[in-house]
């Protein structure tokens, strides 16, 4: 029974992986990746590694998938030319629905598999894995002991890695002053100096919200333009105040 479930989950993981590679839409691809991750979590559970299955579901299928889906939806890639023109919207949506349903079904299968690998299950009473489970094959305590004794240096290094990742992501993804994201915020003022026309707010050198240019940067030459604006804001508050009063009307 568990063997049949393993081969079913392997086939699901492989088919989902092929769906990741072959699907046109990035959304369908990411949802197929979710199906592959969940079925791999079920395989971990069947192999007796309960904590690894939990970490797979929590970190991969939870956090990383949310990150992927967030970026796909943020970039709104169903509208831009990164996709093929052949993939119509309804076809992509149907694929997405199928992938999501498959992932949910695989999650249910994985939960059902947890009952099979428990030590009290009569189905696996003769197997070696059930004996391993009964003797604490993958309990959290031994992993924690291993992490804090033998692998304490990689554990600490991983903390440093997470901190560096956090800072790096902030530096990379932070919207710089005068840099626009895409056409969705095109209703904002042109120059950062022209925030809402009030001189008291524009004369301050640090204003985070009003620094949105009007036109989306559709080419590198145009995207280099707000940097000039950004450097000009550092020259002086008095000059920016004068620029606000002279150019305040034409941008809006």
């Amino acid at each position: 029974m568990a063997e049949l479930l393993f081969y079913f989950l392997s086939a699901a993981a492989l088919i989902s992986a092929l769906g990741v590679v072959t699907s046109k839409s990035p959304m369908a691809s990411v949802l197929a990746l979710l199906g592959s991750l969940v079925s791999l979590g079920g395989i971990y559970l069947l192999a007796g590694f309960q904590f690894m299955a939990a970490a797979q579901l929590l970190v991969y299928a939870g956090a990383i998938m949310v990150l992927f889906l967030f970026v796909v939806m943020l970039l709104n890639m169903t509208d831009i030319g990164a996709l093929d023109e052949h993939s119509t919207r309804s076809f992509g949506m149907r694929r997405m629905a199928v992938a999501t349903l498959a992932a949910a079904g695989l999650a249910l299968v994985g939960m059902a598999a947890s009952t099979l690998t428990s030590s009290s299950s009569p189905l696996l009473a003769k197997g070696t894995d059930s004996e391993l489970v009964a003797t604490g094959y993958d309990n959290l305590q031994s992993i924690a002991a291993l992490l804090s004794s033998r692998y304490v240096l990689p554990f600490q290094a991983s903390a440093v890695l997470l901190l560096a990742t956090m800072i790096g992501v902030l530096v990379l993804a932070k919207r710089r002053r005068g840099q626009n994201f895409d056409g969705q915020t095109s209703g904002q003022p042109v120059l950062p100096l022209q925030g809402d026309g009030s001189p008291s707010e524009a004369s301050q050198p640090k204003q985070p919200k009003a620094a949105l240019p009007d036109q989306p940067a559709s080419s590198p030459q145009e995207s280099a333009e707000p940097d000039l604006v950004h450097s000009s804001t550092k020259k002086g508050a008095a000059q920016s105040l004068a620029a606000t009063q002279t150019q305040g009307g034409q941008g809006l």
Binding site: A55, F68, A82, P216
Partner: peptide, 26 residues
């Protein structure tokens, strides 16, 4: 898994920065 999480975060931030610069992810 930890390295994969860090890699996904940095990679997606790079994709966001690329999209901001080029308006494409191709």
């Amino acid at each position: 898994i930890l390295v994969a999480a860090a890699e996904a975060a940095v990679g997606l931030a790079l994709i966001i920065a690329l999209y901001r610069l080029k308006q494409t992810v191709d």
